[in-house]
Amino acid sequence: MDTAKVRVSSVKISLAVLPLLLLLLWPPVAANWMYLGVVGVTPLLPQGDQEAQNLSTSSAVSICQHLPGLVQQQVAVCQDHPDAIKSVSAGARRGITECQYQFRHERWNCTTTHEDPDVPFGHIIKRGSKETAFIYAITSAGVVHAVTQACSSGNLTDCYCDMSKQGLSTPEGWKWGGCSDNLNFGNQFARQFVDAPEKEWHKKEKKFRNLMNLHNNEAGRQERKSELVHIHSSPNYCKSKPKKGILGTSGRQCNKTSSGPDSCSFLCCGRGYNTKAVKYIERCHCKFVWCCRVECKNCVTKVDVHTCK
């Protein structure tokens, strides 16, 4: 627990670009586990060690310590369920993909960065804005989904078999009356793993921000839609502010005819845009053919491409 915190703080200091004020205002928020979704599990393991790659062996327990940025409880959960860490990574990745799809037309488009493992979404995640709320909810939902899928394909062996009614242990209980479904395990696992850093920080610093993250994690896990909570307003994401993790919208493609968030006037924040006439040989009248190709005709179109200044 302490090592994790020291790690996070030391990174901040070594960056030395954040004003001290920011550090005081925003508690060190550990969203590091989401990094697993950006890079995956395999590159983080000791290379060339076949046994270590085989996560179901007992040596896998040590793998959990190799993964950077997990808090103590997460390491413990990982050691309990070493197979599940792959699902965490897959789930976070699925969450990020979904986030990028949902926000593809917005000024902030859910860009991730490989540069700093502690802040996979850039420093923007330190602000308690509605974008952060969405990141927490969608990655938490991704983990539940991935763990549940791994349970039902049999790739994860840890999933529960609820036999409380008969009071029998697993093999006998399963033969007697079968098992319940896998959804429970995914939820419980995510609650233990994903919520761990927030709970830990909250215990120490009693910041409202941690409660917000916990709420949004839970909201993501619920099947029915529930409201996300945020405590800060969103910045406008217009200008590039690398210190705050804002990339800016310069260079983004915009839609001249749209009146939504992807419209040129909104997306370019009034800076105007460049227009280039491009001749496309476009694929059209497409059809997805199982499996795995898209059959299309070629259509030649002339398009004006608008990019924000």
Binding site: G154, C159, C161, W174
Partner: peptide, 16 residues
């Protein structure tokens, strides 16, 4: 591949 394992136990079908 069935049955799928649960609670870290490899399950097998019973003739019952």
């Amino acid at each position: 591949q069935v049955p799928i394992p649960r609670e870290k136990t490899i399950l097998d079908f019973s003739r019952w």
